[in-house]
Design a protein around this nucleic acid. Structure first.
Length: 821
RNA sequence: GCCGGUGUGUCGGAAUGGCAGACGAGACGGACUCAAAAUCCGUUGUGGGCAACCACGUGUGGGUUCAAGUCCCACCACCGGCACCA
């Protein structure tokens, strides 16, 4: 058998698809639409790597199948092109990032096209194109106008290497996600987006979408809802009744344990510390502790997890609102200013951290819930346990006590029920060049004013040096011509914001732009929106679950709220693929030298072989280890597919032959169902089994080969198109020559469930669960017939002879098991 | 520490509670060839036996069941996420 000439074939069909705009998507209301989305790539200088083709081929298979099922498919591609690596490369090589980006996109485009993915290339978007980021800026202004973008002085994560502010989510174990530089805390004025306002909606919305449980679960955990109560304690200087009482508010999930609160702890950054400075005898010690805590990154703060540290505020005490006893106040870095109110009531009997702290500082531990041994550890069980030492709460169980104390707090104006979220607002400012300029103007008289929408895009100006300024500000801050402007409201001199947006900005709404990428008047037209949205199926990486996926859901919910989009959720269905590791089972990286260039392999084995291999490598949802040797099996399978032409018996047959009919129907069923569940590996295995059976059969007829090509075409579209044309398949299968007939114009195949079953099945005969023989019988035989047939089996009978039968288990088409004594 | 996931031949991996190892890779033997590659045929979990066959076998230990890779309990290892969240 000759190997097929994949180089020529793949070029030919790629050119055909491009010339004929085969995969162009246009609104057609006579057809159901299907919006298939992949995570658009960051066009890095390294080019496509082995990880890209896996998710892209997977969605391509689904998109191609949907087209054959009669859907009008939108399957777009674009470039998430702002970002640090490009900027760092620009700084190092003194090349404009725009130029680098253009080169990278050109390279990526060529590489993507050589895999034959059925993208609509006319809808390409590029987040760095002013026609695109004009609308990213416009969207920011909508956030601002609706009170969801605000500036805030805050301690931020500062990467000492990149000299840039990072979002909490970009800090990995105290290191910068990108450069692994040390991250410390630094106070800066930052633009923030109020994602917290959507915390509840982001949780609730998950009920209506088809996401895997593990994704819903991580998003819910990330948002971190907890229900409890805010309780107002009072605090005042010791022995000085003339001073005013201050209200020290805490958040607690255990208001039922209020009688056990024997001290309080506030965060080192708590504003009351300076307010109370005059009353505090040890203010210097307190300030020193606070300063030390501030210098530590969150990582370092959490590293000292075993040993609790803190300083007592000498001179100010608090009063527990129910016991009315005076209790001490401490500062400690285990209390975070960013969560709750920055202050806690400490209940050492029933919270392990408080318990450890109390042991260290020798503070009273009071049992208020019976059930544990608080000498040894805190008793935290809320399920069973009865209140004690708790005044009017005594003898209630925990849930009852929670209800009663909340009522009491409300009636006595000492607090109220409260829901808290771990989710924090999104730091949206970057002091970098290669990002969308934030379209805001600072006017001494009018405050922050957005750039008038008709002046958008606010384009990135040319600079000589892309390096952030030494003080950490954006390179734009050194550009007088950019900074100086006039206030759009009062026309007096004003200054522009010099921060740019984070990379997540452009990717938070790109799926919307795909619906209407060339629109110059709106970010997307109503008509396009109503036809194409929401996205029907979005596949991407697990690593974006709590970042990109949550951010874009937030933007979408905001837009839904101001009536700019028509659905509450952007994505109906989300799936996640596993990563591809290098041959050494390590994450692929240039420094490890274990990267794989899929284009080099495609040149050697053919794009269809690589597509197939990446789908065959293992369970799509799990990480997989690359093994170049494994491609051979897929290449052989395609060679054998091409060889089917040699054993084709004429062009007459319109129906499957008796010898292959069952196998054909079974494979159609298996492949159809497996694609829907993204079990591509077993779908391919089924087709391999079928081809083995065809070769065992010795020949194939025209109906069988044509349908085999239809089935395989989403996986290996080039070879299938070629054979389809070569063999003259199409409307009339008898044609010998054929015009350019395209396999993807065919209808996807149906199967007959009745024909999927085998005529005969082998049934296992067991005695006490041990296999004693096998029996071939027509499939579907009922229990009685099966048992009777089993008892006629000689070896089986012999084993049963003279034994007492206790039980007979018969499973049709599977087994007969007889339990004997 | 907490949460989630995974653990099956030499390797990648299959198995609605019903014949473990589909499919592929690799290896070995053979055919073709001057030879090699490619291709084709066969063998390939472990131990025992000339054989048909027998015993054992899905991280470890227990349990449920006529029947467990699959369900339950405890543990171990690895991978990923989170890091005192009141």
């Amino acid at each position: 058998m000759n190997n097929y000439n994949f180089t020529a074939i793949e070029k030919k069909w790629q050119k055909y698809w491009e010339d004929n705009k085969t995969f162009r998507a246009e609104i057609d209301k006579t057809k159901p639409k299907f919006f298939a989305l992949i995570e658009f790539p960051y066009p890095s200088g390294q080019g496509l790597h082995a990880g890209h083709p896996r998710p892209y081929t997977a969605m391509d298979i689904i998109a191609r199948k949907r087209r054959m099922q009669g859907y009008n498919v939108l399957f777009p591609i674009g470039w998430d092109a702002f970002g640090l690596p490009t900027e760092n490369y620009a700084i190092k090589n003194k090349i404009h990032p725009k130029k680098i980006t253009a080169d990278n996109i050109a390279r990526f485009t060529e590489q993507c096209k050589s895999f034959g993915w059925s993208f609509d290339w006319e809808r390409e978007v590029d987040t760095t194109n002013p026609d695109y980021y004009r609308w990213t800026q416009w969207l920011f202004i909508q956030f601002f106008k609706n009170g969801l973008a605000y500036k805030k002085e805050m301690a931020v994560n500062w990467c000492t290497e990149c000299k840039v502010v990072l979002a909490n989510e970009e800090v990995i174990q105290g290191e910068c996600e990108r450069c692994h530089g040390e991250v410390v805390r630094k106070v800066k004025s930052q633009w923030m987006l109020k994602i917290t306002e959507y915390a509840q909606q982001l949780i609730d919305g998950l009920e209506d979408v088809d996401y895997p449980e593990r994704i819903k679960y991580s998003q819910i955990n990330w948002i971190g809802r907890s229900t409890g109560a805010e309780v107002d304690f009072t605090a005042r200087a010791v022995g000085d009744i003339s001073t005013d009482e201050d209200v020290l508010r805490v958040f607690t999930t255990r208001p039922d344990t209020l009688f056990g609160a024997t001290y309080m702890v506030i965060a080192p950054e708590h504003p009351y510390i300076e307010k109370w400075a005059d009353s505090l005898e040890n203010i210097e010690e307190i300030r020193q502790y606070a300063e030390k805590a501030a210098r530590k990154s969150d990582f370092e703060r959490s590293e000292i997890v075993k040993e609790k540290s803190g300083v007592r505020l000498v001179g100010v005490n608090a009063v527990n609102p129910v016991t009315e006893k005076e209790i001490p106040i401490f500062i400690s870095d285990y209390v975070l200013m960013s969560y709750g109110t920055g202050a806690i009531m400490a209940v050492p009997g029933h919270d392990q951290r408080d318990w450890e702290f109390a042991k260290k500082f020798d503070l009273p531990i009071v049992e208020v819930v019976k059930g544990g041994d608080i000498e040894k550890e805190a008793y935290t069980d809320v399920e069973e346990g009865v209140m004690v030492n708790s005044g009017f709460l005594n003898d209630l169980d925990v849930p009852e006590a929670k209800q009663k104390i909340k009522k009491w707090l409300k009636e006595n104006n000492k607090g109220k029920s409260k829901i808290n979220y771990k989710l924090r607002d999104w730091v949206f400012s970057r002091q970098r060049y290669w990002g969308e300029p934030i379209p805001m103007i600072w006017c001494e008289k009018c405050g922050w004013i957005p750039v008038p929408e008709e002046e958008l895009p606010l384009t990135l100006p040319e600079v000589d040096n892309y390096m952030p300024a030494e003080n950490g500000e954006s390179p734009l801050s050194t550009l007088e011509s950019f900074i100086n402007t006039t206030c759009p409201v009062c026309k007096s001199p004003a200054k522009r914001e010099t921060d740019t947006m984070p990379q997540w900005a452009g990717s938070s709404w790109y799926y919307l732009r795909y619906a209407d990428p060339l629109n110059q008047n709106e970010f997307v037209s109503k008509e396009a929106l109503e036809y194409w949205l929401p996205v029907d199926w979005y596949n991407g990486g697990m690593e974006h679950t709590t970042l990109h996926l949550l951010y874009s859901r937030f933007w979408h919910k905001f837009l839904f709220g101001i009536d700019k989009v028509n659905t509450p959720e952007p994505y109906l269905k989300r799936t996640a693929h596993g990563m591809i590791l290098g041959e050494d089972s390590q994450k692929m990286s240039k420094s490890r030298g274990n990267t794989v260039d899929p284009n080099i392999l495609a040149a050697e084995y053919g794009a269809d072989s690589i597509r197939l291999y990446e789908m065959f490598i293992g369970d799509f949802e799990k990480t997989a280890t690359w093994n170049t040797a494994g491609i051979k099996g897929c290449k052989r399978f395609l060679d054998r597919t091409f060889g089917l032409a040699d054993i084709l018996r004429g062009h007459e047959s319109r129906e499957y032959s008796d010898s292959l009919k069952g196998a054909m129907h079974r494979t159609i069923k298996k492949v159809s169902e497996d694609i829907e569940q993204m079990k591509f590996n077993t779908a391919i295995a089924a087709m391999m089994s079928l081809i083995n059976e065809i070769y065992d059969n010795g020949s194939i007829n025209c109906a069988e080969l044509k349908d085999f090509l239809i089935l395989l075409s989403p996986f290996a579209p080039h070879i299938c198109s070629e054979m389809y044309e070569m063999l003259g398949f199409g409307d009339g299968v008898e044609s010998e020559t054929g015009d350019l007939k395209q396999v993807h114009d065919e209808k996807w195949l149906d199967f007959d469930p009745e024909l999927c079953v085998f005529d005969e099945v082998e049934v296992v005969l067991q005695i006490n669960g041990k296999i004693k023989g096998r029996l071939t019988i027509e499939s579907g035989a009922d229990k009685k017939a099966l048992l009777a047939a089993a008892k006629e089996n000689e070896a089986f009978c012999a084993a049963l002879l003279g034994k007492e039968i206790v039980k007979e288990i018969v499973v049709p088409d599977k087994l007969v098991n007889i339990v004997i004594k």
